[in-house]
Write a protein that binds this DNA or RNA. Structure first.
Length: 845
RNA sequence: GCGCAAGUGGCGGAAUGGUAGACGCGCUGGCUUCAGGUGCCAGUGCCCGCAAGGGCGUGGGGGUUCAAGUCCCCCCUUGCGCACCA
């Protein structure tokens, strides 16, 4: 392969990234160094390094460049540490953008999607992440989505996939339902940006709430391995809340009404009940009320439903409500309390009804004061000085803290925790309540009324009974888009594909109709990391034996925007796979890195705002290596990078300096294979310190610091060549080789070219890091700090093996130190040889 | 409102309780080349000083310690997340 070397590249020409890229791309295409064939056996330890796979909307952008840069650094790092690394790539290629583009331009979503994929593949090739291209997958391939359907059927069998009628989030622009997770905090759709409305529809759900406790509790084991932010967001989202269910009788109604409360201790202070206006209970109670109340309620319900999410969520809104003309009975004291409907109670949380304790809950208090309802204090809450807080009815401030119970019969005198425990005991003994837990997490709504997704493998008979498609009949392929009207119209376009939708049961001859909806594309991405393990296997979703070998993913890299959706769903599906016995672990991603965003002038880049840095043009102008070094050197990977603050030129300059060292060695250095033993000590020390420190820096994601160390190494090597030991010293070759190997995780092209100039065969990407030798890093003499009263007064050169006593003597002898001490009295001397001696003084007596 | 991060030169950022500002960008001066926007050398936290040296300095205020950017308490600011969830 020597003709691939750079003998023909003369010194005048220097570092030329274009020539280098052109030289090595074909070689790598030939070598396929990162392919790990399925079933391949190796003695090496394994690492599964995965980037969140991209959505193929247009070409790659700077965000991709950053994310895939960090993932690739880690993949290449682990190869350098002697691991066999699986680093696959695929495309999350189902979804609305393809469909919307198709509608807008009249092209087939397939064409649009696969054209974009081809473009991204081409960009990736130049950018050169070390992907295993033999395992590529696209979720829109029938070979892939067949297994979505298989998972759906498995879940259906287990009762984890079910259909129900419910109020759902409806996106009026995309004309489809959305999962709770796809509705942003301001009530708009994360996709279309439209204000989401509520609609009652029968839809398919995955029973993720069955897994709420496991999804929450298992987060503890990810502490320190996942970003704290993601863990907290997931905990928030699951929103477990422990408390009690309390049953209230309602006069004139047979069945008791359960309410959920986290404060059963305050039950004696419950002076009214509030139900959600859009709950079944409210409708029922209103129906049994007087005519005027019925009309008022109807108007109130309509007003509630018309409200946008923003209006409804505004916290400092006046309370509104309607008295429902009914009374409930407080189970602990038999008191008659009025039942109201108000929109501050949510229909889909708890039981859609609450016991209102206005003295100790601000919302209830606001409501009580507005409608003149009684407020009864049952907890004696004190301030920091131990003074009782003002009566909430007067102050308007509910006292929600801990305190001593009063006005609460047998609970009187107890503290909060004891009172809660006691209250629950009492309720359970009387059969009017029990300890219980509720969650904010809702079941995962997976039906979508759109075309470009996985068909739901369910058939309906004429009488409406459903039957799953037989596993052998999978995949249920999407019909061709041609001839279908893909415009959103509230029902799936697939329903109109009559030929596709109608199936005759071969056994019974019965005519069946296919479910016309497609699955949420988050189903696709919730298990793709398994598919990579058996990407081309037509017989199974993935091979459990391969999963045992490779999974879970050791290192996951991606944006924090998926902190809830994708990661929660993936964790859920992984647990389902565990329960089904296909895998022996319950968490899919062992370690996770969230890269920051790439900004321009402090703002998110956007084409419409005109502040865009184009990945393609940067790649063209500076090359992949300089781009990658720039991204990695800019700062910690979790931080945002402002493109206005970085210098791609600076990175290119560094690469050229590194490259020139290898070039100098090629021209006048020690021969390849030379023993490094006799080489320059100082340079060798630096080289080996780099090799020793490198791993801990890389493994703690301090890629920027490791590049700084590489720069220092290049600088000291330059100095050694020009004004030190000279280029022919073996230590220079040793340093150059170490630089090439370490640099290869950041700048694969430059490193490969250096490696060739240094007389080695490709590819440097598979070369293990030379071992750093601790014995070469010991120094004879060090600079010792002498402090007097905490201030540095001198720096003296001492033997590295100096004793504490000798260090103290040397420090006391320092003229600078003596001057600082003056006539003060030394009270204490702390010696930490050979680093520092600290002298503490006080004024002379 | 609740919760979680983070505040270090002109800028991006380094610093197991032990020399604050590594490395780089930018800037200043010089050399080389000279068409140079290349390359090389030196300098670059602020203030006083010719220098030696000294004073100040990691958002603010206290504290622990021989020693604090780092640990503890209070406050301020910014960013992010959640938010009528009973």
């Amino acid at each position: 392969m020597s003709e691939q070397g750079t003998g023909q590249q003369d010194a005048e020409q220097g570092y030329d990234f274009k020539a280098i890229q052109d030289r090595w791309l074909p070689v790598w295409d030939e070598l396929k160094p990162f392919e790990v064939p399925v079933g391949h056996e190796s003695d090496k330890p394994r690492k599964y390094v995965l980037d969140m796979f991209p959505y193929p909307s247009g070409d790659l952008h700077m965000g991709h460049a950053e994310a895939f840069c960090f993932g690739d650094i880690l993949a290449r790092y682990w190869r350098g540490q002697g691991h066999e690394v699986l680093h696959p790539i695929g495309w999350d290629s189902f979804g609305l953008p393809a469909e919307n583009a198709a509608i807008k331009r009249g092209v087939d979503p397939r064409e649009w999607t696969y054209a974009n994929i081809a473009q991204q593949k081409a960009s990736f090739r130049a950018y050169a992440p070390s992907f295993d291209w033999s395992r590529v997958l696209h979720t829109s391939d029938p070979e892939y989505y067949k297994w979505n359907q298989w998972i759906f059927l498995k879940m259906y069998e287990k009762g984890l996939a079910y259909r129900k009628a419910s109020w759902v989030n409806w996106d009026p622009v995309d004309q489809t339902v959305l999962a709770n997770e796809q509705v942003l905090a301001d009530g708009t759709s994360e996709r279309s940006g439209a204000m989401v409305v509520k609609k009652k529809l029968t839809q398919w759900y995955f029973r993720i709430t069955d897994y709420a406790d496991r999804l929450l509790d298992d987060l503890d084991a990810l502490e320190g391995r996942w970003p704290a932010k993601v863990l907290s967001m997931q905990r928030n989202w699951i929103g477990r809340s422990r408390g009690a269910e309390v049953e209230f009788e309602i006069e004139g109604r047979d069945a008791r009404v359960p309410v959920f409360t986290t404060r059963p201790d305050t039950l004696h202070g419950a002076t009214f009940m509030v139900v959600a206006p859009d709950s079944d209970l409210a409708a029922e109670l209103a129906a049994g009320a007087s005519g005027p109340v019925r009309m008022q309620f109807q108007a109130y319900l309509e007003a509630t439903q018309k409200q946008t999410e923003i209006e409804r969520q505004s916290t400092d809104r006046e309370k509104t409500g309607i008295f429902l003309d009914h009374f409930a009975v407080n189970p602990v004291n038999g008191e008659r309390i009025p039942v109201w409907a108000s929109d501050y109670v949510l229909a889909d949380y708890g039981h859609g009804a609450i016991m209102a304790v206005p003295a100790h809950d601000q919302r209830d208090l606001d409501f009580a004061l507005k409608f003149d309802l009684p407020v009864r204090v049952v907890v004696d809450v004190r301030d920091e000085e131990g003074e009782p807080l003002q009566d909430p009815a007067v102050s308007g401030v509910a006292t929600s803290g801990d305190g001593t119970m009063l006005n609460s019969a047998e609970l009187d005198g107890l503290g909060k925790d004891d009172a809660i425990a006691r209250a629950i005991e009492t309720l359970e003994a009387r059969g009017t309540g029990r300890a219980t837990t509720t969650y904010r997490l809702r079941d995962w709504l997976i039906s979508r009324q759109r075309y470009w997704g996985t068909p739901i493998p369910i058939l309906y008979a004429e009488d409406g009974t459903m039957q799953p498609v037989a596993e052998a009949a999978l995949p249920v392929q999407l019909p061709a888009a041609a001839g279908l009207d893909l415009k959103p119209k509230g029902s799936s376009p697939l329903g109109a594909a009559t030929e596709w939708a109608t199936v005759v049961d071969p056994e019974t001859g019965e005519t069946l109709t296919r479910d016309p909806d497609t699955m949420d594309t988050f189903v696709d991405s919730s298990w793709y990391y398994f598919r990579f393990l058996s990407a081309n296997d037509p017989t199974q979703a993935f091979d459990p034996a391969e999963a045992k070998k490779w999974a879970p993913v050791d290192q996951y890299v991606g944006g924090v925007e998926h902190a809830i959706l994708h990661l929660l769903y993936s964790r859920f599906i992984t647990k389902v796979m565990f329960d089904l016995g296909y895998i022996d672990f319950e968490e899919p991603f062992v370690d996770m890195l969230n890269q920051g965003m790439v900004l321009l002038d402090g703002a998110k880049m956007s084409k419409s705002k005109g502040n865009l840095v184009e990945f393609a043009s940067e790649l063209e102008e500076h090359g992949a290596d300089a781009l990658r070094v720039t991204l990695a050197f800019a700062g910690p990977p979790e931080d945002d990078i402002d493109w206005a603050d970085v210098s791609v030129q600076g990175s290119a300059k560094f690469l050229a300096r590194a490259w020139r060292i290898a070039h100098d060695v090629e021209v006048g250095g020690a021969p390849v294979g030379v023993a490094f033993d006799g080489g320059d000590k100082a340079l060798r020390r630096s080289t080996h310190q780099l090799l020793i420190d490198g791993p801990q820096l890389a493994e703690s994601y301090k890629f920027n610091v490791l590049i700084a160390r590489l720069m220092e190494q290049v600088n000291v090597t330059r100095k050694a060549i020009d004004s030190g030991c000279g280029v022919a010293d073996p230590a220079v070759r040793e340093s150059a080789e170490a630089i090439a190997v370490v640099l290869s995780m950041y700048a694969p092209y430059a490193a490969e070219d250096m490696w060739a100039m240094l007389g080695h065969e490709p590819t440097v990407a598979l070369v293990e890091w030379p071992k750093g030798d601790e014995s070469l890093t010991v120094v004879d003499e060090v600079l010792m700090i002498v402090q007097v009263d905490g201030k540095v007064r001198d720096k003296i050169t001492v033997s590295a093996s100096i004793t504490d006593a000798d260090a103290e003597t040397a420090a006391r002898a320092s003229a600078n130190a003596q001057r600082a001490i003056g006539d003060r009295e030394i009270v204490k001397v702390i010696a930490r040889a050979p680093k520092i001696v600290s002298i503490a003084t006080k004024p002379a007596a």
